[in-house]
Design a protein around this nucleic acid. Structure first.
Lengths: 357, 357
DNA sequence: AGCACTTGATGATGCGCATCATCAAACCCT
DNA sequence: AGGGTTTGATGATGCGCATCATCAAGTGCT
């Protein structure tokens, strides 16, 4: 880190101004569209002269200076506590990133991935030795599951323009986010199950209290309210492990539950496996559905074409960026920006009407 | 784009200086490691005071200002003419990006994806209405196949610090790159084929004159030189389409060629299909090998476990960033930085000794 | 002719920082 | 005790740009 000077120094605005025998202000005006919006007007003749000088010198505005002067730099960040291009987890991030990139591109901004934000260990952190490293970007989109909520809350309270992908509730901070409507999707899924004729539906719920799961809780509760006692809807807390799933499935089947709903596709796969082990056929003897398409480690799930709610990842990513843009363009309005997006549905092969129906 | 002022203005160096009752220069020195390298020395006591003030105010250096003043901003860019997170082509980019991210993270820099660099149509462009949009980053890594070579040459000639992933020769410009040693890999593959006993080997070459293909040409030529007339090595120019491949395979088989080498895995798949259509079995009746693992559109290739050269994508990405770092740290040395990395080899199931051997 | 108004352009200022030249004080050695 | 050196800190300057306040000249209207 030294020598601030590049081999060949780039021409500056002043150089252009000199060559065209005008003031720097005129050059600036010409470069940024001379609508006169900034108070400086330029005649056609001089503008032409300036443009000629620009071409001749190969002048290119210095981004740093420009961003310093006008207070924004056209960079939108993406932060996550996890590594950004993990070889494996790509499947999880990918749709979000695609959406983010799409929207950022529409805004004509650049996308900054915060790779340098790690502390001594490999763990990432926003406040790196006391300084908010996200400041490099005008604002940021926050993705991920594992997170330091205290730090995030501080970030938002600090007034840093941030938008989460997925609903978040942080203590003492009004968070902006682009979320998926898991509540409605869950309710509709349960209604669909009921509509198929199932009268005993059990939900196998993991222990997470993440907002995305709480939303599904809400949806499940709503469905229950609406269906009343026409359908027996039970929630069973089961650790998200194949063995634990396998341990509860037999009992539920015996009790006459004809449809099991799990938090995610991976657990649904476990249920299918457990059912198969019992000599049952899915979906003939037992229907299975998932509240999330995600698969975390086990790829054998692909064997089953599981019926599941899908996350509108791309739309969420894109919407998050749009919200962020709004946040940046209207800094006076401090209210949180929130969007809730409809989920998709994958009508797989694990859900049909129950045998008796 | 307006209102340069955020709700709450960020504290500046001057604010910190005031609070700690020191001069701005001291704050600057504390922030950038007070080795005294910049001429300003700070005592332990005052340094502590300044640090306390920084913490108290939550001061964060303004990147734009910093970068304007010192000429660098700790941002490394990745540019490509294609979209960066294309849903499909991800397989192609992914390894490179992983390597890039890895190395950038080591440098403690951030990674900027140039998403905003598109002109009116969807096509990306470096010189967007006359201004080099890559300037936001200290330097950039360039990836991709479809490219505007004239623009790239201009970029390099302009003295912009850029490193290519993959060898490139541009007119009038000394390019830095991290390339794969396709020449050696190709030669070794042909030698291996010869070693297995094949005496008639044909290469099905597409029409590309990309450097990565030219390198394979060189490797093929080297192998030919070395093997002399012990092995008949022929090159056949064939358009990279399944039909064209299917059209030439029968003739080659009839002429006694026992091993066909293609530019990439997709074409190798075409060969396998063509061979199968002829009632031949791969590799019993015909061996097949590819000079590149890439598959561009057709996923049915997965049916064949094709023997192929593999590209050290991750290493190339990481090396490119390291070269770039060197370029940035030693701007005085204008010589191009170049690294050539050994390829890998996937010993698939399509190459064995010929039947007669 | 006189005034209001528009057009075209200028110079100064500041964005937030790094760095250089300068300087005061403390320290060391003889 | 006094000259030289090291340590610790200060102000000033400039990086390249956008923008604001100002101003001269031209235009239209009564």
């Amino acid at each position: 880190m030294k020598a601030p000077e590049r081999p060949r120094k780039r021409p500056t605005q002043a150089d252009v101004a000199r060559l065209a025998s005008v003031s720097p202000a005129v050059v600036s005006a010409v470069v940024n569209g001379r609508g006169g919006a900034n108070g400086v007007r330029v005649g056609d003749r001089t503008a032409a002269r300036v443009e000629e000088a620009i071409r001749q010198l190969g002048y290119v505005p210095n981004v740093a200076a420009r961003s310093l002067a006008r207070g924004r730099n056209g960079i939108i960040g993406v932060f996550t506590y996890e590594a950004l291009f993990p070889l494996q987890a790509m499947s999880y991030y990918h749709p979000f990133l695609v959406g983010v990139e799409e929207a950022v591109e529409e805004l004509d901004c650049h996308l900054l991935l915060f790779t340098g934000s790690h502390t001594d260990d490999r763990r990432r952190s926003i406040y790196k030795n006391g300084t908010n490293s996200l400041q490099v970007a005008d604002g940021s989109v926050l993705i991920g599951q594992s997170e330091d909520r205290a730090e995030l809350a501080e970030l938002v309270r600090d007034g840093y323009p941030a938008v989460f992908i997925g609903r978040r509730e942080l203590p003492g901070a009004e968070v902006s986010y682009a979320a998926a409507d898991y509540a409605t999707a869950t309710r509709e899924l349960v209604e669909r199950i009921s509509g198929l004729g199932h009268r005993r539906v059990a939900r196998l719920r993991g222990g997470s209290d993440h907002e995305s799961i709480l939303d599904r809780d809400a949806g499940f509760a709503a469905a229950r309210d609406q269906l009343g006692d026409r359908v027996d809807t039970t929630e069973v807390f089961v650790p998200p492990r194949a063995e634990s799933i396998a341990a509860v499935v037999p009992g539920l089947v015996e009790q006459g539950y004809t449809c099991l709903v799990t938090d995610d596709r991976e657990r649904a796969g476990d249920v299918c496996a457990a059912a198969t082990a019992l000599g049952l056929s899915v979906p003939r003897d037992l229907s299975v559905a998932a509240l999330s398409e995600y698969v975390y480690v086990d790829n054998s799930v692909e064997r089953w074409d599981i019926t599941t709610i899908t996350t509108p990842g791309r739309e969420m990513g894109a919407e998050a960026v749009r919200l962020l843009a709004d946040l940046l363009d209207n800094p006076a309005d401090a209210t949180p920006r929130r969007v809730v997006i409809d989920c998709g549905f994958h009508a797989g092969a694990t859900l049909t009407a129950p045998q008796g129906a």
